[in-house]
Design a protein around this nucleic acid. Structure first.
Lengths: 351, 351
DNA sequence: CTGAAAGCGCTAACAG
DNA sequence: CTGTTAGCGCTTTCAG
């Protein structure tokens, strides 16, 4: 570790921050004239505009958005809050980027936080964002009910739910067609000759997990496979628990010929386990949500691919429409997923 | 798309937001007493505290952090700004998570933005964050000089650079040991018998790219391989450009026996190209920065693995130390990378 | 222990 | 075209 000392620096004695008043004084104009120039309002002579511009630069003036907002009639902070599963998760990262791209076009800044599927974090994060007066909240939720947001919504804060549907509140939401896509994944395995298909899923308190689970069971039923032949493992939350569950599955008597892994980390854990067991070319697997480099594995991983970037963009677009005063009925926006056959999902059972 | 109409909702008629004044009136106390209760200041009787608490809940009162901050003596917004390469990049996501975890412990919210290695974005994003009066800025930069931040730094805004070193300003920075790690990667290939090693790197206007390039050249020199035998391709920014560059390399006369891919997306592009050419078991490759599922590929990808999460945590820790008034000399913090041999980097040249 | 008055940096309303 | 006044929601100061 190198150190770069600089005893002469102003590190210890902070310079005062210039205010609009300071700029006005230096430019020899009224404070309101400075306000007009800064905000690009009309009716200021070129002469004064130039003076103000000069003073602004000399003082390195940066307007205080929040101070202005206190009195401004629209009371918009030009700031929104985003809550995703985890900013470290690739799915979340793409949702985030979708939101950011739409927000940046409007000069809106984005607070981002990780939910970790922890109800207490949901409460804390939302509360902190509200105290900062975000114009909109784009939320992935985990609490069983979002009714606590109704008063805030009535005060004009826009609320859009993303990835999961809320309960106890009427609001816009943007989600993937979880159940249909899960059914399609299951059907794909059935079409390739499987009847003994294991479902590996996330915690059932998550809306997405329940939907995917439902799609799996409904598809089995649709082709007449009795529920008693279903193999469902719930509560898998990361690749490690999924790995262990998969290992257990194949050390038991009832090893399946195929796996439907209903979450990205779960897919990774299951793939690792199949490798470990040397079964990666014997047991079929379809994952829900794409996994990075899934196309370079051998066999490449067949997945139901979601559209996280589009989900983020759409959620943000809805949010800004509302901020702009659009007052149509709240809507549930369902984005399609697409099944991408790559190899692992097309393995047939050994007869 | 389903729609859930609710004509009775208050969507159209926003409820007024309660202020501290409203709470005081309802509780029948002075506004300062409410302030004391909200902020947990001492010297309020239990009776009044209870009244205030009740009024707070009845009105669903949320204090306005920014309004309070206007007059507060410390003038802290409890908000920081983070600029990363792209929130959709896995490396950035982990840095972000490291920052978030440290910030969340202190009740500090994080603005996150993507730089896209675009100088004009750097300017815009920094300016927007400053107008929101962040307490600290944790920045990945791309402009050739960060001197424009000096006035802001002197006003007390903490600035910490992350992943890349700044120029023209004295400040804390947290980076990976790029040059040494690149040299180690190059040495690893040399140790496995290679002399014809291609360097595939990012744009040379990026500090990290220059450092890694330097490590590569210095290692070649160290073992006496003349610069004329080096094969360096610069300016690769994503997997597509890297794929194309790699394909070109092997259709030319001077195909290398090994590749040092000096960035995560570049590694992915090169791996795809080697697959395409059927050379993945013939040509060695070492990547800089880990790639997801790199251990499940065949051969698994040898990488120099950085510590993005630790980088994020350290940057945030330094930032909060400064916010808390720590006034030590600015320091350059270098985090080590570790070479992870997995197979692709241990392939020997065909004699 | 409690509260009234002043003012943070800015914008709205109005007067010149 | 320009500037003055009031006040956003809160904390500070200071008097009870």
């Amino acid at each position: 570790m190198t150190s770069m000392s600089n005893p002469e620096s102003s590190r210890t004695t902070p310079t005062a921050r210039a205010t609009m008043r300071d700029v006005a004084a230096l430019a020899g104009v009224g404070i309101k004239t400075v306000s007009r120039v800064i905000n690009g309002e009309p009716n200021v002579s070129d002469a004064l505009t130039a003076k103000v511009r000069l003073a602004t630069e000399q003082l390195n003036y940066q307007p205080d958005l929040h101070a202005g907002n206190l009195k401004r009639s629209d009371r918009k902070t030009r700031t929104i809050g985003l809550v995703v599963g985890s900013v470290a998760n690739p799915f979340s990262g793409l949702v985030h980027r979708g939101v950011e791209d739409v927000a940046a076009d409007r000069g809106v800044a984005v607070f981002a936080s990780s939910l970790d599927d922890d109800p207490s974090r949901e409460t804390r994060i939302v509360s902190e964002m509200l105290s900062r007066r975000v114009d909109a909240l784009i939320l992935t939720t985990v609490k069983q009910n979002q009714g606590y947001l109704i008063p805030e919504q009535q005060r004009g804060t826009v609320i859009v739910f993303v990835d999961r549907q809320p309960a106890g509140i009427d609001a816009d939401s943007v989600v993937t067609n979880n159940a249909e896509a899960a059914a399609a994944a299951t059907a794909h395995l059935i079409d390739h000759g499987h009847r003994s298909i294991a479902y590996l899923g996330d915690r059932v308190d998550l809306w997405t997990a329940r939907e995917r689970r439902r799609g799996y069971f409904e598809q089995l039923a649709a082709v007449g496979i009795p529920t008693s032949e279903a193999i469902a493992v719930d509560g898998l939350h990361d690749d490690q628990t999924s790995y262990e569950a998969t290992m257990r599955l194949f050390s038991s008597g009832s090893a399946p010929t195929a796996i439907f892994a209903a979450q990205n980390l779960v897919t990774i854990g299951a793939v690792r386990a199949l490798r470990q067991l040397g079964l990666q070319r014997k047991v079929a697997i379809v994952g829900f949500d794409d996994i990075p480099l899934g196309d370079l594995l051998e066999p490449a991983i067949t997945v139901v691919s979601q559209q996280p970037y589009a989900i983020g963009r759409l959620a943000a677009t809805r949010a800004f429409d509302r901020i702009d005063g659009v007052d149509s009925d709240f809507g549930l926006h369902v984005l399609p997923s697409v099944l991408v056959p790559r190899g692992s999902g097309e393995i047939r059972p050994e007869q």
